[in-house]
Design a protein around this nucleic acid. Sequence first.
DNA 1: ATGGATGTTGCACATGTTGCAACGAGCTGA
DNA 2: TCAGCTCGTTGCAACATGTGCAACATCCAT
Lengths: 249, 249
Amino acid sequence: MSQTVDRALRILPLLAEGPANLEQVATRLDVHKSTALRLLRTLHEHGLVYRQGDQRYRLGGRLFALAQEAMENIDIRATAHPHLVALNENCGHTVHLAVHEEGEVIYVDKVDSRYPVRMYSRIGKPVAITVAAVAKILLADLPGDELRTLARKLDYPRYTARSIIGPEAFLAELAKVREQGWATDFGGHEESINCVGAPIRGHDGRVVAAMSVSAPNVVVTAEELLALLPLVRRTAQTISRDYAGYTSR
Amino acid sequence: MSQTVDRALRILPLLAEGPANLEQVATRLDVHKSTALRLLRTLHEHGLVYRQGDQRYRLGGRLFALAQEAMENIDIRATAHPHLVALNENCGHTVHLAVHEEGEVIYVDKVDSRYPVRMYSRIGKPVAITVAAVAKILLADLPGDELRTLARKLDYPRYTARSIIGPEAFLAELAKVREQGWATDFGGHEESINCVGAPIRGHDGRVVAAMSVSAPNVVVTAEELLALLPLVRRTAQTISRDYAGYTSR
DNA sequence: ATGGATGTTGCACATGTTGCAACGAGCTGA
DNA sequence: TCAGCTCGTTGCAACATGTGCAACATCCAT
């Protein structure tokens, strides 16, 4: 909509790939050097890009601070957090909380496993949308037409032999998830990692977030993890009640 | 420099305070509604802001993804991480890694305490710059004039009775830190939390990052923590060597 | 010294941004 | 049901702002 702002913002993902100098930025934006310079300066003034010693630009620290504050405004987080911690203390595994936002699913909270072998994930990281248990839960709640459109647009990377490939398989899996009210991911993202997840619902019954418990094969088998399902679902329901009571609107 | 981009970027910290509707944004930017609308739409297209159900805007998920990627480009992180983990396994306390960037100090890595009582901090969070051990270490390395300018500009919040207040006290503390090559924070930020930290240096001897070990009083006394100082300094030196060898430029 | 590569500045032009005014949608109370 | 309010959206004309150019500055290698 706004050309100038659009150009400036296109610089950010570009720099996210790695530091770049003025000319590289100008070339990739397809604008004159002087234009790129002005945009970079404006971003710099706002702390969104940082100029390192060798004159190359990279993303700046303000970005972290903003992401940080944004995270803290997500009110489901505050409600859920103590319950996630309690669940973690109870079962010892990694607990995740995720929300959906316009075609992306992102982790917004995480309580680490107490076992030395931990899975890699990080708050703020976009979730593998076609395979993760939390993603299935969140997307299963979308209206049918919107979901079909999304399913067609998605990529279906074959992370492992058990990854879900293609819109039909994905829609079928989501139908199952919607039906049963919970989801699993047994090695669909990383061979040796299993998850079980459950939805957190707002006062109107819509899914507002999803939580999951994850553990590597070397710690517990898929069956043992599945045995935790009732506990996970109970926790999700407790959070839902808490949230519905708490939410002001 | 660029008015349009400047206005657009001013929206971000504004939304970081909490969700806002079009009119609030327009008022706070001091522009017409239609202008604010166009800027918001552009930010929206890039995923930096998100429009929630009630039509209010808040910061969007792409921000997390960007911050995430930016973090992973900070190469000192990759070098330091295994050493931080090793130190954590050795002493059990929370370990932090921080860097300095234009007047701000931010945590870029963290390994959590194995004790149940953990301090609150989060990767990406700006550090309490006037009291934290890592901040003292990083700022102590700045050139004298730049440092004095900065010291005069800073706020000195009285977090606790032991917080450092005022530029003179701060500069004196930094001189001591520079002299001795390590820093502490005994309850200057939170009454019951102590830290000891050491600098990580690049090939030219300049401080490129700082690391620290933190623990609450209820777990170990300040004296016991101080006993870990040699270990912390040794780890920092190991990372420095690793980094100087590794760095390509 | 000389040449090349890259960052920076001032400026004239026209393109994109701006505020306005009018419209639309949703809500409230009479 | 309608008038009256608030708040988001749209089209447009005026002109402020962003744009690319060309010249200059700086740095490095030869």
